[in-house]
Design a protein around this nucleic acid. Structure first.
Lengths: 231, 231
DNA sequence: ACCTGAACACCGTTCAAGT
DNA sequence: ACCTGAACACCGTTCAAGT
């Protein structure tokens, strides 16, 4: 507005302290900053590049493609999961670990979807596996079952986070709930007797109930189910 | 190649019989055709429009946005799930139903991801819920638990299909498996003893084992776990 | 009411050219 | 070796204009 002394370099966004040199670490850190707390902003190579004061093409020196970037960002994030949280018996510590995992993903909703689809091989992801296998071993679950169990536990936790993240990201979700409620109410008890009878339970209870109950179900189920190869 | 009699209207793709009039049903049908068997083609408004011999803008008369299209296509697809498959006790019929569900999603890998995130309210989706609630009722599971159980069962089945679909869609997946195997092999047994010990079980067994064992775990767990609200 | 072309504001990825 | 601008081949969505 007013006439101010003009510096040589116009400050583009916030006041950025000397353009940092590009590096894989800087790129991953920038990406985490971009999507933290799931602001409406998607993680995009072009957006990330402009955040780092460069062009999209420059990122390809450090990252093969979008997918690899997502995987790197995800593994970095998994480093913040508290694998030693909780006290008491192994069951409670296992539940605490997975709750920490879900909380971490809640803060980065767009990554939860990535986690569902990538089979991650980063160091932090492996540490997560190791911690869970150790707890299951403590509980007497044999390796053949423990491996499948971790898969299942992570799948449940990740899917729960992804669903939450998707809902948080869309303005639609409230309207969607109403539509579901209406659809269920509109059903004749003739054609859908069980659904009508269960309607009151359908959208009830805090979201934490779903996660917690699900984890209990899985742990109880794992303790009761020996592995059998599918015919 | 050779000189053939030239018809008035050049046939654009396959020989299309007189351009069909647009309608919601025609759009959904066209979309299913486009993504059947998960050819590399993504479902895109522009692609779908060109398949229907029109412009993308025209689709907006029948469909509010991409998300709504995906939801409509998904519900249409769920109509082909065999909710009455299987014989014998309720457990086996429940497992047969969910196996049919997964098989259907396998044929349309890109939709499985949609299913993970949308809370569907279409008629076919509701029929799927009703059938599962009926089976759980038969097994003596009370409504409060049954609702959470269906949620969990569908989550597992859907996530399994989505993961499979994602892998089928990417050329990367084989290389990814190798990377995981290498990462696990490269671990010192000192730092990751349980992972090293379980390595042989890690990528073993047919994929069906994961689904089947998971469903057994869930059903056993549900029968053993009363609902308690999270504190 | 239905359909359209053109425009707008984006994407990921490649590549020749610069340093 | 690293970085860049420009180009290519796409997206979803809107809108004025046509029928």
């Amino acid at each position: 507005m007013s006439e101010v002394v003009r510096r040589r370099e116009p400050v583009s966004r916030r006041d950025r302290p000397a353009k940092a040199p590009l590096s894989r670490a800087a790129i991953v850190a920038g990406a985490l900053g971009l999507i933290r707390d799931g602001g409406a902003e998607r993680l995009t190579l072009r957006r990330l590049a402009s955040e780092l004061d460069t062009g999209a093409a420059s990122l390809y020196v450090y990252v093969a493609n979008t997918e690899e970037l997502y995987a790197a960002v995800l593994d970095e994030l998994l480093g913040t999961v508290d694998v030693r949280r909780g006290t008491g018996p192994w069951r409670e510590r296992l539940q605490a670990l997975l709750t920490s995992y879900v909380e971490v993903l809640y803060a980065y909703p767009s990554l939860a979807r990535t986690a569902l689809i990538t089979r991650p091989s980063g160091v932090n992801s492996l540490a997560l596996w190791e911690a869970q296998l150790a707890l299951l071993d403590e509980g007497g679950v044999r390796p053949a079952e423990a491996v499948l169990a971790v898969d299942l536990l992570l799948q449940h936790a990740t899917a729960t986070a992804a669903e939450h993240g998707a809902r948080a990201g869309r303005s639609e979700s409230a309207a969607e709930d109403v539509r579901v409620a209406e659809a269920v109410e509109g059903l004749s008890a003739d054609s859908h007797p069980h659904l009508a009878a269960a309607a009151e339970h359908l959208l009830s209870g805090p979201p934490a109930t779903r996660l917690t109950w699900g984890l209990q179900v899985l742990i109880n189920g794992v303790l009761a189910t020996p592995r059998t190869e599918a015919r």
